[in-house]
Amino acid sequence: MQETVDTPQAAPAPAAEPNRRAGAAAFRPSLARRARRALAPLPWLAPALALIAFVVLWPVWEMFQTSRQHINSYGFNLGDYGWKNYSTLFADPNLGSVMVRTVLWVFAIVAITVLISLGLAQLLNRGFPGRKLVRWALIAPWAASVMMTAIVFRWMLDPNNGVVNVFLHQIGVVHDYNGSQASWLGDPTAALWWMIAVAVFVSVPFTTYALLAGLTSIPADVYEAARMDGAGKWRTYRAITFPLLRPALLVAVLINLMNVFNSFPIIWTMTGGGPDYQTSTSTVYMYALKQFNIGESGALSVVNFGVVILIVLVFLRANRSALKEG
């Protein structure tokens, strides 16, 4: 099983081999030569390194600098502020609930998305009439602008004449238009669930396609062997499909984690993070803070950045072995 997966990757390896062998065959090289050799790849790497420095490291440094300045809502820098933005931020009574909500938001969306996508990918991997059409249709929520999708959902949930409420009224669930029951986006809990549903709706296509790609790369002979050994359907899925799907799954989950953590347009469009920040995640709250105090908003950016890095590190560490196998 391991061999079958590894063979395609082993193929390009010989190209690198002669180099290594030549190095080993040479006599103990002098220090200067070793340094030169170590630096030799630099000209080839330089453009990539420069790009990383320019679009990743420099903005991070700027963000950190901003978080230590006193900048008002008009963009005027009133001078160095030390750590005051951070102390104000950590004393903020809203921060705790915003962070807890962010964790819930990320976890709920990624978990639901992955569950739905696992099923959908399995379905789309099967031959059935109209499969092509379904595959195409699945792209729609991905291709459409997230903001547009969010606006459409907001209209659908309008308490007075949204199509969702009209339908629920007709089947007798919602009794009064304009009532508190019909005001889905006005109630923080209901609003959050609706927004989670929208977020899942827009994340499912990518996740499904990533998993589908993983499924199609599983060779058919593995399944054949399993069938010969008399493995049942569930057993085959657990022992073959799922383990071989893991690399694709990990990539999909990781990308979703970061995307969902940073997701802004859905919440901003549907509730604006309100009422009273009660549907704000940390990204939305950062934006709300920016309207009075850019420095404090910058401090929250640094915190958010740290959280993302932390999530990625923990996730990679937990799945170290799986990623190596892949």
Binding site: G179, S180, Q181, S183, L185, D187, G274, D276
Partner: peptide, 24 residues
């Protein structure tokens, strides 16, 4: 008491003005 619209904290002026104009 339910004498206003639901969740006033999320309802904008423009919405209510046009609802008033619509007679509701």
């Amino acid at each position: 008491a339910g004498d206003t619209e639901a969740n006033p904290g999320t309802v904008n002026r423009a919405t209510l003005w046009s609802d008033f104009a619509a007679g509701s």
